[in-house]
Design a protein around this nucleic acid. Sequence first.
DNA 1: ACCTGAACACCGTTCAAGT
DNA 2: ACCTGAACACCGTTCAAGT
Lengths: 228, 228
Amino acid sequence: MMGPMPQPPAPRKTTGRPARISRAEILRTALRIVTDEGVDRLTMRRLASEVGSTPMALYHHVRDKEELLLLLLDDYAAQHLRRPPAPPTDPRERVIAAATAIHEVLAACPWAVEVLTADDLMSTSALWFVEQIVDGLTVCGLSLESAVHGYRAIWYYTAGEIVIRATAARRRAADDRPTYRDRVFADLDPDELPRLAEVADRWAPLTAQDTYAEGLTALVNGLLTRGD
Amino acid sequence: MMGPMPQPPAPRKTTGRPARISRAEILRTALRIVTDEGVDRLTMRRLASEVGSTPMALYHHVRDKEELLLLLLDDYAAQHLRRPPAPPTDPRERVIAAATAIHEVLAACPWAVEVLTADDLMSTSALWFVEQIVDGLTVCGLSLESAVHGYRAIWYYTAGEIVIRATAARRRAADDRPTYRDRVFADLDPDELPRLAEVADRWAPLTAQDTYAEGLTALVNGLLTRGD
DNA sequence: ACCTGAACACCGTTCAAGT
DNA sequence: ACCTGAACACCGTTCAAGT
């Protein structure tokens, strides 16, 4: 996942020239660009002109573009990752609920994909959910070490699902040619690859289905079962 | 995963000017740049100068940069994804072995990360392994539909692991500042986040461990067990 | 058919100067 | 302290022309 606010909003001193643009305004504008037009369209120059300033003014409020994206996701998570009033009492359910909550919020912001893979710990707002997952797994009988590894497995699965689906969607939007996948599945050798040949024509709809929940349940069940 | 050779190596006619550079030469050079210096350093201009040509000559052999990267991974997979002489007879073991083989090859080329997320079906060389996974799951009693969904879950987990680890590694290499993660874990509130506080100092080594196999086993076991 | 040169329309970021 | 202008060192890709 990713990091917390790298710097607290810069303890504004009263001396010196008054700021014309604020970090909050920058983030607000950046979020608008990114949700309206996609993360590709967010450039420092574009952002600067939208806040009515110059590219270099931005560098006074954020270290670089990467920090900007980090701050953006942090901001977004802080606003959308609300804790449920009462998490499930069943620890297994608590793990599922926490993972699902993270997944739901992140799946809603496909622009976050680049940030998601950029660090391995989410915003401070997400820590409570990580705690729920590690705690749930522990209460179910896993050692603390295994619980952390279990959390990582869940995170790999969750991030993978989001990244792959988001990129696939972006691709479909940008490109109307039939995907390479379609072409391969169009002429499979049924002798060499019988199963794939059998599902060939159902592959696209099958993989378009949202099966995050099912996979998550399977993974959590598997984590909580002594392997053989 | 990604697509197969988008175009067969262009049926070279005997008419016209003889080609000075070949697709194979381009790919060979691109692979060298990418393995030596990372995918960031692969630019069309750089690549052109390394093959002793101009940027525009490349566009005669590949559609664009994205196709170049796709071809690169296809090439790599074709060379490295060798089928085992005898896959395990136990279907569950076959699923694990196939996923592990894909993971092993892809983990070795972190430069493939951007390509990995760019499409949802791997190179033709990987299809045999996909077949093994779907078949193994089916033989274990899953419906063909569930087997495809199971394969997708395994792919999400696998791709997520590779993407996240690769990006984390790249980050560590580029940046020696303590990661944001370290800073958060440095001051956790043990009342609010007791489990995380308890593992705080073991978090870094724990998440550095390679637990792909354990997570995969858990996921596959979970997929093969009737959920409750 | 294959390749070139010049150009288009951009990037993120640094530097030195202004107020 | 905050902002600006100009510049640096690049990008991927298109177009029109050469051989």
